[in-house]
Design a protein around this nucleic acid. Structure first.
Lengths: 333, 333
DNA sequence: CTGTTAGCGCTTTCAT
DNA sequence: ATGAAAGCGCTAACAG
């Protein structure tokens, strides 16, 4: 691997000059630039990013923490962030936290040790205090899908309460009054917010919330199936089932079908997130759009503006509003 | 950010000693080790991975190139690779090539510039020659899902021809003889191999391959729909349709349903890959297992063994055999 | 416009 | 077992 030194020798200039043409900032005469470029080409020179980072204290890479490396939701997030950052010559270092305090902690330490210029975090397990300390440390941090007090400028969230409201409201508008609800793990803020929205829609329509109408799932497909089974024995009067995410909705659909329900004529189902596969389901799932794509884009632009001084026309918004995606699983009662 | 120098001062030892306790290789007396560790703890010292890499010429990170950052297939691959590598203290730098020569090229250059200790590539666009040169450059490289001549030791592939054979063979065993086929882009090796397997199964059963039974898709959902529409006008006698991946199978199912076919009583459909969502489809998709998980695991172990000298009990295999996953979309004729 | 010269934070001989 | 010192490849003042 050729070094900058060999290039400078081959071109008959100093190290500094080679560095200058690489970085294109300072003025270099056309002739010397040409000489250097030729030398680089003939040596197959490729800058050592590690050395550049150490010397410049800049890595041109931003760390991205997601909960999992698979799944539509995170796939969408990773994809979006990488795309806008790469367009601007920045690179993304992705790591997974697996919704586990220690592993999230470790992942963040890893990203810090790689001296990322900024961090984009979808952190579910670490504490608010930890995040506040992180931000205080002067490392630019943006937090996705989680609102942390006193960190409003760094947080990008979807209005989960409103999303939960929209889902149940849509069912009510179709005449449903006995509505089951499969929530996510309620210690998670997004899960409890969505449930709160569900309750608000119920209250607004004068429908009493019955404890037996709620099944607490874990956001995975299987708990959607379990939830549906639960409903049949504990809340069998339901005519509509709203699920706190699409995976659980899919599981519920399977279980419902196995139990002989036709969807939506005998049972309506509504999901949340609008992940890619929700439109492949049969019937196509009616769901709430979770603008993860928009949030990822926004997070990336925030970093571009705040860290790299790359201005874009995009105005920074922190709260994203969900909307209902009407497809085929919600029917009139 | 504290440096090793500050730690050495606080502990009253030399830089070298601090380095030794960090790396735990050379002998350090219990007392000095303790002093150093205390100093580290009280300073909140965190090694600078960039500097370590520059000095040691080792980054402890392996580069992973995938085609896309979203989708079940790549999600599975990224997840698996990251998991086994992280278990061994190595980190993964993920980047996307988008099935485009220039972008794959650029992505690989990026990984090289970050001085990854090894590369795991799911490269679809770059040439065989390019890959051979890469391997010749002494950078440890493993290639997933692509067989390159003279690089057998570095390639991990599934037997696509056999997979294609299995799918069609299964349909034939159920009595089907008019079998449509939606292929992937035929310039891709995996797509043409799968088609070859299809033809072999046909030939073995004495069924002539009709050109009109083939629709060349692009592996995306929409081309599955288009393929199904094509079949209705050009190969309407089909009773079974085999698709070269699950996304296209899903699209075909949607189109078939819209055209009024019941699956599988009126039309059987078989997919390929067995991605996660294939079991969420209704009816659940009969498909061919693509052992991407096993391949990712194997690739990671190869790196562990060859690059980091971490031996594992896992024997290195290069060819993976697919198998049929019987679910609900293939019916008897 | 170009060259000289310190480092960046750490590893790694080579001594002791 | 520990320390001194020479880099790793590059950037960034500072001169000129």
């Amino acid at each position: 691997m050729a070094t900058i030194y060999e290039v400078s020798e081959a071109a008959g200039v100093s190290l500094a000059t080679v560095s200058r043409v690489m970085n294109g900032n300072a003025k270099v005469s056309e002739r010397t630039r040409k000489k250097v470029e030729d030398a680089m080409a003939s040596l197959g020179y490729q800058p050592n990013a590690i050395a550049q980072s150490l010397a410049s204290n800049r890595t041109n890479s931003v760390g991205l923490l997601v909960s999992e490396l698979h799944g539509s939701y995170f796939g969408d997030l990773m994809s979006t962030v990488e795309q806008v950052l790469k367009q601007n010559g920045k690179h993304v270092i992705i790591t997974a936290g697996h919704v586990n305090v220690d592993r999230e902690h470790e992942a963040i330490e890893f990203l810090k040790s790689r001296r990322c210029d900024a961090l984009i975090l979808h952190a579910e397990a670490v504490s608010d205090d930890y995040l506040r300390k992180l931000v205080d440390s002067k490392l630019p941090v943006v937090i996705i899908n989680r609102k942390v007090d006193n960190l409003d400028d760094n947080c990008f969230v979807v209005d989960n309460e409103q999303g939960g409201y929209l889902a149940t409201h849509a069912a009510i508008k179709q005449g449903h009054r006995n509505i089951g609800y499969i929530s996510g793990p309620l210690f998670k803020k997004d899960a409890s917010d969505r449930l709160a929205g569900h309750k608000r829609a119920l209250a607004e329509a004068g429908i009493e919330f019955e404890a037996s109408s709620l099944f607490e799932g874990d956001f995975h497909e299987s708990s959607g199936q379990e939830g549906m089974q639960y409903m049949q024995t504990h809340f069998s009067k339901l005519t509509a089932l709203v699920c706190a995410n699409d995976e659980m909705a899919s599981g519920a659909m399977t279980a419902a079908r196995e139990a002989g329900f036709d969807i939506p004529s005998q049972l309506s189902i509504i999901g949340f997130d609008n992940v890619l596969f929700s439109r492949y389901l049969y019937p196509k799932l009616t769901t709430i759009n979770n603008p993860i794509h928009a949030m990822g884009e926004m997070a990336a632009h925030w970093v571009l503006q705040h860290v790299y001084n790359i201005k874009s026309s995009m105005a920074i918004e922190h709260l994203f509003v969900p909307e209902i995606i009407n497809r085929d699983t919600l029917g009139k009662l």
